[in-house]
Computed example of a mutant assay.
Amino acid sequence: MQRIDVTRDDGTWAGLSLDVRDRHQPDLCVHTAGPRLLVSQLSRPVLLAVVEEPLQGVHFRRADTARALSGSPERWAHRFARYLSDSPGSPLHEGRWLLTCESPILHGRHPTTSHAEHWSSMLVEGDPDGYIDWYLHSHSWEVLPLRPMPGPGDSRVKAYRKQVREGTLPPVLLWWVSGLDCHLILDGHARLAAAIAESVEPPLLQVHRTAARDDLAAGIEDAVGAYESALARFAGLRAFHGPTVPDGAATTGPQFARLLHDLHTARQPTWS
């Protein structure tokens, strides 16, 4: 597996691109049959689900899974990348993936809502049965534990609450699954419970599929062609109208940079 750091326009770290090869069948994967979904790990059922008509949500039944760790997003991304690559129960399969701390679920809290209230509302309830409400919660903002969440009195949660207060809590590892339109907790149930108990925003790392190598190369080629055409058009206008026409690179450069960033990081549907 090849790992490449992905940076923003200003050079700050945005995520870790994972280029997985020679791993045709993931050990943690999604199976589908009509409206039914099965998440299995090493052929062991972890989660059963049925999509409700008319596509307003999904009923699920959980089985189990989890572990623990601590540090900065970059350092933890590399640690989790090794964990995902070496673990016999990983969702990774051949293709390109992104491990990132930039998750859409970090931007949905209303200023008047506490972190404890917000993250508690994000958790999909139900043990062993439950329901993911696509109508009530849009934009893939729900988080589905793969085992019952431990309570605030749990010994692991108590230990992690100390790390929360010290600012050293390891991130919670989420896997975005398009067929469920929510995030599954791969690692960090107790850490998330500790963050909720302390009413702070938990550190997160999210893993999802990104564009395949061939699709990425084609997208970059198209983007470069469009950018060069735009530069030539601005150059022609400046030659005719003079310096009143804005510089082409300054005008179209930021959009080109964002497009390249999105090509490297955009979520792709989960294989099933």
Rank of each mutant, 00 (worst) to 15 (best):
Q2R: 13
R3G: 06
D10V: 05
G11A: 07
L16Q: 08
H24F: 04
D27Q: 14
C29L: 11
C29F: 09
H31Q: 14
L37S: 09
S43T: 12
L48Q: 14
A49C: 08
R67Q: 11
A68Q: 12
G71E: 13
P73V: 09
E74K: 12
R75I: 14
W76E: 14
H78A: 09
A81M: 04
S85Q: 15
S87E: 06
P88W: 09
S90L: 09
P91Q: 06
H93S: 15
H93A: 15
E94R: 10
R96Y: 04
W97A: 07
S103E: 06
S103I: 07
P104D: 13
P104V: 14
I105S: 05
L106N: 02
L106E: 06
G108T: 07
R109G: 05
T112L: 13
S114Q: 07
S114M: 05
H118A: 03
V124G: 00
E125T: 11
D133Q: 04
D133K: 02
D133R: 01
W134Q: 07
Y135P: 00
H137A: 12
S138H: 11
H139W: 10
V143R: 00
L144K: 00
P150Q: 08
R156I: 06
K158L: 14
K158D: 01
A159Q: 11
Y160T: 03
Y160V: 02
Y160N: 15
R161L: 02
R165K: 15
T168K: 11
L173R: 05
L173M: 10
L174H: 00
W176D: 02
V177M: 03
L180G: 06
L180N: 07
I185L: 03
L186G: 01
D187N: 06
A193P: 00
P202M: 02
P202H: 02
H208K: 05
H208T: 06
D215P: 00
A218M: 09
G219A: 08
G219I: 08
D222M: 12
A223G: 07
V224N: 08
G225E: 09
L231Y: 05
R233C: 08
A235I: 03
G236V: 10
R238Q: 15
F240Q: 12
V245C: 05
D247M: 03
D247G: 12
A250E: 15
H264P: 00
R267H: 12
P269M: 10
